[in-house]
Simulated scan of single mutants.
Amino acid sequence: MLIPFIFISACGADNANESEWRTLDLNNTVLLTLPQGKVVIELAPQFSPKHVEQFSSLVQKSFYDGTKFYRVIDGFVAQGGPKDGSEQDKSVPLLAMEGQFSTDGKAPFTLVQRDDLFAKKTGFKEGFAVATNNSKSGWLTHCPGVLAMARSNEADSASSHFYFVIGQAPRYLDKIMTIFGRVVYGMNHIQAIQRTTVIDGEYAVDSREHTPIISMKLMADVPKKDRIIIEVENTESASFAERLVKRRARASEFFYKKPPPVLDVCQVPIRSRLVKLQD
């Protein structure tokens, strides 16, 4: 898949889209209902088309309804899906890895940093944190809140098990896992998912206490009165580029000692705003 890139400096964005906000496509937005509340997920078919296609198809079949988050590690990930080895699990085709995408250097990519620990350049494209080492390919980064597909040891072994990053960014998973979405609303409910691992000496968490998925639906399939409509920050806009400059400078008087002018792509929250909540 070809995703063209050019770099827009965070010092200016003369050719950037001036609109500060972007409305999500209802066909690429998922409404996840947990016991503790509702979560809105933006999918990324522009980067991981096969994973989004399969995940969306499973969502439309109510595949995940009633399944649980069975591997939830504090500071790391919350992983859910059907029971391993079950008929439900084995019914889903395996997916080829979509850890990287091709580029040709012609579309906006808002630069955040050069030469971080994992890539020569990091930045944002269409709201997603991306990284690249050259002009030919890029990848999505494991920032908090991203949605990715779990797999076994073989690269092309993902199917239906997925995870959310709930801790600090595990960037060492970049390129070897497929990220295909991100949470844009309700991250507090994702953080409230029951942890399933304990420290030495504690009692194991009973599987009956694992957090269940009440339902998962494409927003386009949700009745209009029940939809949660979200707008997200347009990371190709001039105002976003200006925000990056200010965030890097840390000009507030609170910083009586200035930190180095370094800006980690995973420490730039992309703002969302609620346009309509269900009645």
Rank of each mutant, 00 (worst) to 15 (best):
D14Y: 02
K68Q: 07
Q100E: 11
T235P: 06
V205K: 11
D174V: 04
A148E: 05
G75N: 09
I213S: 04
L117D: 14
E87F: 08
F101E: 04
F118S: 06
A241R: 15
A78F: 03
I199R: 14
T110K: 01
Y163K: 01
R248Y: 05
W139M: 08
H161E: 12
R195M: 00
E253I: 12
V184L: 06
V40F: 06
N234Y: 13
P212F: 06
S102V: 09
E233G: 06
N134A: 08
F124Y: 12
N17I: 12
P45T: 07
V77I: 15
S48W: 04
Q100W: 01
P223T: 04
K121R: 14
S9R: 12
S272T: 15
V268W: 04
Y70F: 10
D174K: 02
S86A: 08
A13Y: 01
T122V: 15
A220Q: 07
S239T: 15
S159L: 00
W21P: 08
Q191Y: 09
R271H: 13
S207H: 08
E154A: 14
P260E: 11
S152N: 12
D264E: 15
V245G: 04
Y172K: 04
K175F: 00
V77Y: 02
R243G: 05
P82N: 04
K224T: 13
Q79F: 01
G99Y: 02
A192K: 11
I199N: 14
I228L: 14
T235I: 10
L32W: 10
